[in-house]
Structures are given as C-alpha cells and as structure tokens.
C-alpha cells in the first residue's frame, strides 16, 4: 500500500476560545477521491481551512507527501501542489475571467493544465474570457473557480461545497465534468452536503459530527443507517 498523500493525526482547531475540531484522524491515498460529509457546523469548513493553511494548527498534525505542513501559510501550502475550489466560488470581482484563471497559475507549477486546457474543458470560458468574472452565471462562475484551481496543476484538489447555490441541472453538468478533471494520478477531497452525490463520485467517505470523525468507510459499502447515525448522532 502506497504512503498517503495527505495524513491528519489528532488534528485540532480553535477559533479563539471555541474549539471546532477534536483530534481528527484522516488520510487520502494517491489517486483517490475522498468524500467528507457532515451537517452544518460539523467542522467541514474548518477542516478545509486547516488543510489549506488558512488556519494554523499544532505541529505535525497535518502531513502532506510525508512533510509537516500544519504550520505553513496558505500560499506555501499552495506551492506544494494543494489547491482548493472554495465554497461560494469566491472569484476575484475586479479580475476578468482570464485573469482569474491566470492568478491560479501564480504558483508556477508545471503540468497538463494551462489556459488552453481549461478552455477545452469549459469552452464557454473561452468565449467569456474578457468579461468581469462576477457577470457570469453561477454555473459558469463555478467553472472559473475549478479552472482557477486546476491552473496550479495540483496533486490534491479540494472541492468545498461545489453544488451549493447552483441549480440541479448545473450541478449535474459540473459533476459530469469531474472525471475529466480528476485524472493523471490527481487526488481529490470532495466536501458535500448532497450525500448521494458525494457517495457516487468517491471511493471512500468520512462523516464529521461536532468536530470528530463519526464514520469512515468505502463509499459503496456504508449503509444508509450508518450514515444517518453518523450524520445526526441518532440511531
């Protein structure tokens, strides 16, 4: 079995006096698609902020490719090949579509993804490349956010609530594009409120509840009962 690309051991996180994560143990294997589910406030976003470096954690709690990244800044983490498609898309409003994508390439990592590759994946972005990013529809903005993350040629891509606030038909399109994105040995973490969708695209799943891992298993093995117990904390 290969070493995991990302490993969390006893990960804790605090906002001031408030503790949001209580000793999370989790790992992602190379080439694997992992789903993280959980109710609002379970700690999913905090987990994402910790992994990407937006939140500082205790030493040795997060290891990426065998190296401790728990005390690195977000830009240093990004340079090592970890990218995120943030919740709510969060494009840069004063940048055009093309400029948003180019910001993603700022880390300067080589790989298959460049402007041309992103435009081939989402041809509509080529047509709209000089528009202000916020003038696009929600689905198109999500494409920009995904393209922006891909431009850094990441080894591990984090999707935070990508279906939030989008129409069902658009969500379907976005998820249809995923296999074309997660390839060439890339790993991914998908944080999702839509449990069925999350289980369908992932190999393994973790469920969080009140800052702790309440369930871990293969996505096609976990049962509905196990999930509702882990999700809501009731049998």
């Amino acid at each position: 079995m290969p070493d995991p690309i990302l490993q969390m051991r006893g990960l804790t996180a605090h906002y001031g006096d408030f503790q949001a994560l209580y000793g999370i143990d989790m790992h992602v294997d190379p080439g694997e698609v992992l789903a993280i589910i959980g109710a609002n406030g379970a700690g999913k976003t905090t987990l994402m902020r910790s992994v990407t470096g937006l939140l500082r954690n205790g030493a040795n709690q997060i290891r990426y490719r065998g190296q401790d990244i728990s005390r690195l800044r977000a830009d240093q983490v990004a340079r090592r090949g970890l990218a995120m498609v943030p919740e709510g898309r969060q494009l840069f409003p004063s940048l055009s579509v093309k400029e948003n994508l180019m910001i993603g390439a700022q880390v300067g990592r080589k790989g298959p993804w460049d402007l041309g590759a992103v435009y081939r994946l989402f041809p509509i972005l080529d047509e709209r490349k000089d528009q202000q990013s916020i003038s696009l529809s929600g689905g198109q903005q999500q494409m920009v956010a995904i393209g922006r993350a891909l431009m850094s040629n990441p080894d591990l891509l984090l999707f935070d609530e990508i279906s939030l606030g989008l129409a069902p038909i658009v969500i379907k399109d976005i998820y249809a594009a995923l296999p074309g994105i997660i390839k060439d040995g890339m790993s991914a973490i998908i944080v999702e409120q839509d449990i069925a969708q999350a289980l369908k695209v992932s190999g393994r799943v973790y469920c969080l509840q009140e800052g702790r891992v309440s369930l871990e298993g293969a996505s096609d093995k976990v049962t509905r009962e196990e999930i509702s117990r882990a999700y809501f904390g009731i049998a």
Binding site: T52, G53, L54, R73, A74, D75, A78, R79, A83, M84, P86, Q90, F92, P93, S94, L95, E99, M102, I103, G104, Q106, V107, G108, R148, S152
Partner: peptide
C-alpha cells in the same frame, strides 16, 4: 493582477499562492 486579487479577497488570494 496580484494587487487587485489581494485587494478583492485576501484569503482566496493566499490560497492561490499569493
């Protein structure tokens, strides 16, 4: 571009390696 991105959203700009 980096100036404008950081001005728009510091956290996300940081995620993009800035």
């Amino acid at each position: 571009r980096a100036f404008r991105a950081v001005s728009d959203n510091q956290d996300i700009a940081q995620l993009m390696g800035l």
